[in-house]
Nucleic acid binder design. Sequence first.
DNA 1: TCTGGGGTCCTAGGACCC
DNA 2: TCTGGGGTCCTAGGACCC
Length: 437
Amino acid sequence: MHADLDAFFASVEVLDDPSLRGKPVAVGGAGERGVIASASYEARRFGVRSAMPSVVAKRVCPALVILPGRFDRYEVYSRQFHNIVRDLTPDYEPLGLDEVFADLRSLRRLGVRPLDAAAALRSRINGELGLFCGVGLGRNKLFAKLASKESKPRVVDRGLIEGPGVFWVSPELETQWLAVLPVRALWGVGPATAAKLAQLGLTWVRDLARVDETTLAKHVGASMAAALAAYAQGEDRREVVVDRALKSLGHDQTFARSLSGANEVYEALKTHAAVVARALREKDLVARTISVVVRFDDLTSVSRSQTLSFGVDDEHAIGAIGEALLQSVDLSRTIRLLGLHASGFLVRNENQMQLSFGLDTVSLDAKSSATEISRERQVSSEALRDAVDEVRRRFGRTSVGTASELSEHGVEIATQRGRHAFGPEVARDESDATSER
DNA sequence: TCTGGGGTCCTAGGACCC
DNA sequence: TCTGGGGTCCTAGGACCC
């Protein structure tokens, strides 16, 4: 099963402000660089679509009300949506805030028919949340997803046509049904892949069935070719994965006015670091890899990343790493987007080596190994600052510093085992004990 | 019409290890 | 002295999903 809430963000806004009912409403950025994230069906009648630039949306629908997103609010509804699905079966996998896949095989073994389960789900979501939901049923994720699209209301000639609400692709009909869909309808086929396929004369799913997978792979890569070849046969081995682990998190921002100059970029980076650090701590994670992405005014992007031998979750540490990564980016160009991302997660726990540069704690015990750091010698942020000041007073300004300063000076630290140089490359250096670092 | 922000996955090359 | 083939990890970029 695939279940998908109708016009989710826009619908939540209408629920919270009934005066919006019946009006063309969208959620998204209203500024010059904004895009539409979600549009009510009234707005869709005018041609407003998600991912459409807001200025375009306003042009095709001058009466459009564009609201900024309130994601905390959507998350509340999303959790309730997931809870209702969970009541049906624990075998479900969220996809964003407003979609889920669910494996109904265990329900079937209990004698519950998928069509009944789908109807019950829609009824509860509408009754308890006031939202509408389309449900697709099929033999695998491929058909369930395509079917849920078919279940939705549709705009035809500026009018709205009700959808069936539930759509089931029965196994007997699935091959014929699939054959006449455009390749663009398939999961993983976006504008770029569709264009490549079009060059090969492949427009419809049935066209894919007649092309050799090896040939396909030369144009779209091995992984995509294998998926497409399977989909063309109606085969999809992807499982419903319960509790998929988070792999990365980050924060990106497109600025209403592009940034110019390193100082503006570094200021923005600090804000980003605080957002990312808070998200990590909220999830009890530390990240080994930090990356930055910069998009210039000409829409070209570059990214830089660095993987450390330990995890971080502190905004100052993350900010300093980000700043160091930006050293090799041309900041004399004007920048419309700055992103900061964390990945390579380790679960944060008592034994995890945790280097913090700020509020949190620093535990550097030269006698213990990396895996048995005790928290006994934790240093409060004030004590840390005081200690840093004292070291600088006695040994000079560059004797100890933050990671951002490492890129300029490098730092040398004396421990019971000798002296250790710290510089921009230190994170890659596995030769000395992490605990001493 | 001019392109967001949250993510995932894939590819290719290079460094490195055995 | 110059070399293979298996593997992992990291980096950068790109495509795609909602």
